[in-house]
Design a binder for these strands. Structure first.
Length: 412
DNA sequence: TGTCCACTGGAACGTACGGCTT
DNA sequence: AAGCCGTACGTTCCAGTGGACA
């Protein structure tokens, strides 16, 4: 009789184990970014406000432009998508043509890209570079007018676009209705930055913020409700310890009431539970998930950094560690730059100027790895005080994955 | 109260490159 | 192929600045 051949594919074990392990998730998708829930707890006021503003579409009129303000994870994007989804259905019922475009200005951050992206929504092909911006704008206008529609453009993280490329795009968009003959455009701007209006050109400001809706951060109790809702849909009954949701809510409330982070944490805790072959999510899994998320973000950000930024981060790390030993806090731009030059010397690389390094420090700050605060030390001048916002151990680990940098990390 | 440090950060400009139009 | 145009990444120049200190 033929002997049963044992496969030496290591994945067999993984798959068998996975299939045999207890199932915690009923529907994992409800804990991802893509999911738009049917109800948004504690956001009724904002939903109604946005609904009222955009409702004129139901009479075929162009609604006012709206601005949604609030910190990350306060439900701005979810509310906007929720309202537009419902509105589109209602408009169709009333026989009006309405379309929406969603643009995230985090990636679409130049005038050219915004119009190119809008063209894509209308199925107009444009190259990602090469054309004059005016030409792309004209193609967009022509295509839009042909559609004879009410076009709502949601611009998420709009502050990033303005900070990088100025108010020009928004100016053109707010004026576009004077160019169009048949179609009409409304803009829903979403910003994390409450001070964003200060950067805005006054001409744009007046027409763009015809209406404003503010989103305050969720409290621990509100996060608790949101998580309960989602957990109910996502997990099988009895798979979640009673202490888990209050714990996640408390962690997220401490970290600025960010619901997205809270939901992420819940999802990862579930994944870890399944992977461990456990059947109930406990606070232990939550803490493991918290650790894993931080580790992942740091390592992802650090490994994808360009070489100069990595070198700079190494320099900051070395200086920071040195200062820590002497019970001093904070590295200044000057310290970091000196150390950076030294590292460039070892690597036989041409160093960047201090001006450029100052900019790269700001970028690292934006990425959430470090915090760079401008301080004045009186007669010792003005500088940035740099500290790490994530654990230095994680930064060390992420940097050591680069062979070229590893040897510097144990330098003193 | 004025000085002065160690920068910051805006502005203008240069270079390399991809890709379009003519 | 030449002439544009946009993007990315960088440099140079320099006015401006908060606050400790003489």
């Amino acid at each position: 009789m033929a002997e049963v051949q044992k496969s030496d594919n290591p994945l067999d074990d993984v798959f068998t184990e996975f299939l045999q392990s207890p199932r915690v998730f009923k529907n994992r998708d409800v804990l991802t970014d893509r999911y738009i829930p049917d109800k948004l707890p504690h956001r009724t006021t904002q939903i109604k406000a946005l609904g009222y503003t955009l409702a004129s579409i139901l009479r075929g009129a162009r609604p006012s432009n709206v601005f949604l303000y609030g910190k990350t994870g306060t439900g701005k994007t979810a509310v906007a998508k929720f309202v537009l989804k419902n509105l589109a259905a209602k408009a169709k019922e009333q026989g009006y043509d309405m379309s929406t475009a969603y643009i995230n200005c985090h990636t679409v951050d130049t005038n050219y890209r915004v119009f190119a992206e809008l063209c894509h929504f209308l199925d107009v092909k444009v190259p990602f570079t090469g054309l004059p911006t005016d030409e792309v704008f004209n193609r967009f206008c022509t295509a839009l007018d042909e559609k004879n529609t009410l076009f709502v453009i949601v611009m998420d993280e709009i502050d990033l676009l303005v900070k990088k490329s100025g108010s020009e795009t928004l100016y053109q968009l707010t004026r576009i209705n004077t160019v169009l003959e048949k179609s009409r455009v409304s803009i829903v701007g979403i910003s994390n930055d409450l001070k964003f209006k200060e950067y805005l050109d006054p001409r744009v400001l007046s027409s763009l913020s015809e209406e404003e809706i503010v989103f305050r951060p969720y409290t621990a109790q509100e996060l608790n409700d949101i998580l309960n809702d989602r957990a109910h849909m996502a997990f099988n009954d009895g798979c979640i310890d009673d202490a888990v949701i209050p714990l996640i809510a408390a962690i997220a409330a401490r970290e600025h009431g960010d619901a997205r982070r809270a939901i992420d944490l819940l999802r990862v805790a579930g994944e870890i539970t399944e992977r461990n072959g456990d059947s109930i999510i406990t606070p232990k899994h939550v803490r493991m998930a918290h650790d894993a998320i931080e580790r992942n973000t740091v390592s992802e950000v650090v490994t994808t950094l360009p070489i100069q930024s990595k070198l700079l981060l190494t320099a900051i790390y070395l200086q920071y560690r040195e200062r820590e030993k002497n019970d001093e806090t904070g590295v200044t731009t000057g310290d970091a730059y000196q150390q950076y030059i030294e590292l460039c010397d070892y690597m036989r690389m041409e160093p960047l100027t201090q001006r450029r390094i100052s900019e790269l420090i700001n970028e690292l700050d934006l990425l959430g790895i470090i915090s760079a605060r401008v301080v004045s030390r009186g007669r010792y001048g003005r500088t940035k005080q740099i500290t790490f916002t994530v654990s230095t151990r994680l930064v060390h680990d992420a940097l050591s994955s680069d062979i070229g940098l590893k040897k510097f990390l144990n330098f003193s």
